[in-house]
């Protein structure tokens, strides 16, 4: 088990470094160089200025040297310096993170119970119309652009009915982010639950005299939970894209706005740092699920040992 965890940990580090390598390759090895990208094609006439900036950011050093520096930096936890502000990227991210974590946390605390409830009810009910309705709900929610949903909520509950502030409040942004997230949770879980409900062991449980609710909760859900959890990494992906648009719609500062401004100002080191940080978060989550999986499933326990 220890060896299994250690091996997975090494793999996770390799994935994060590979993500860094990928952005490094895109930013540095492509014909355009970061300074030109940042300044935009129309402002790069003045070669002397370009050269000066290159020197300032240390971009005149050989590619291999810069790459090695970057990798060593990441292993030390140093993500470089922003082009725009000249500040440490790691510190900038750390500063913006808490507000986004609050948003994502609030959204997930709505989305996960809601998603569970939808999937559980759909799997458990005998009413066919209710099951169909609940099963169609996630697909409907996931067809709605998140930013538009935020605007509609603003329109209805800030301007129409003055219940929530258009700026500064947490409720509307959290609800906006929670809708696609809960749809995602419900969809993944319901798909797994439906598959598990067809398994003969559920019938065995019912033959023993278990109620439908018990068959779903104690048997099917237990088997569906872990495979569904392996999709958690995708949920983080959702939260990243969701936070970018939600923070823009509700004018909240946070990681999403930071990403948006890094792209708008072409602050490549900042964007690179954000990519590495997000990948690390996703990979860490995947790792946790992978390590937890054998704890729940005895069949995997033997294989991991």
């Amino acid at each position: 088990m220890v060896r299994f965890v250690a091996r997975r940990l090494l793999q996770a580090v390799a994935v994060v470094l590979a993500a860094y390598t990928l952005t490094f390759a895109v930013f540095s090895v492509l014909p355009a160089d970061p300074v030109r990208i940042m300044m935009g094609p129309e402002n790069t006439r003045d070669e002397a200025q370009v050269a000066a900036l290159r020197a300032e950011y240390g971009l005149d050093r050989p590619v291999a040297e810069r790459y090695a520096d970057g990798v060593l930096g990441i292993l030390r936890g140093d993500l470089g310096t922003s082009f725009q502000t000249g500040r440490d990227v790691g510190a900038t991210i750390a500063e913006a993170a808490p507000r986004t974590f609050a948003l994502a946390g609030a959204a997930l605390s709505l989305a996960i119970p809601a998603g569970f409830l939808i999937a559980w009810t759909a799997a458990h009910t005998r009413r066919l119309w209710l099951r169909r309705l609940l099963a169609a709900l996630p697909g409907l929610s996931l067809s709605v652009p998140t930013f538009w949903l935020g605007l509609m909520l603003l329109q209805a509950f800030s301007f129409g009915l003055p219940w929530f502030p258009a700026r500064g409040g947490l409720v509307l942004p959290a609800v906006t982010l929670a809708v696609p997230s809960s749809a995602f949770v419900a969809q993944v879980l319901l798909e797994r639950l439906t598959a598990e409900m067809r398994q003969p062991y559920v019938e065995t449980a019912r033959a023993k005299g278990a109620s439908r609710a018990r068959a779903v909760t104690a048997h099917a859900l237990r088997n569906a939970a872990m495979p569904a959890l392996t999709m958690a990494a995708l949920l983080v992906g959702w939260l990243v894209s969701g936070s970018v648009v939600v923070e823009t719609v509700f004018a909240r500062n946070g990681l999403g706005r930071l990403i948006e401004s890094a792209v708008a100002t072409r602050d490549l080191p900042l964007l690179q740092g954000l990519v590495v940080a997000a990948t690390a978060a996703v990979t860490l989550l995947t790792l946790t699920v992978d390590v937890a999986h054998p704890l729940v499933d005895p069949r995997l326990r033997e294989r991991a040992a």
């Binding site: 994935v15 990928l22 894209s241 792209v263 490549l268 964007l271 997000a278």
Partner: peptide, 21 residues
């Protein structure tokens, strides 16, 4: 392995990286 790395990066970020360049 390469595909796994691409999948580990949130896809919206990947889009934004390309758009930034």
């Amino acid at each position: 392995r390469g595909v796994e790395v691409l999948l580990a990066v949130p896809s919206f970020l990947l889009v934004l990286v390309v758009v930034a360049v």
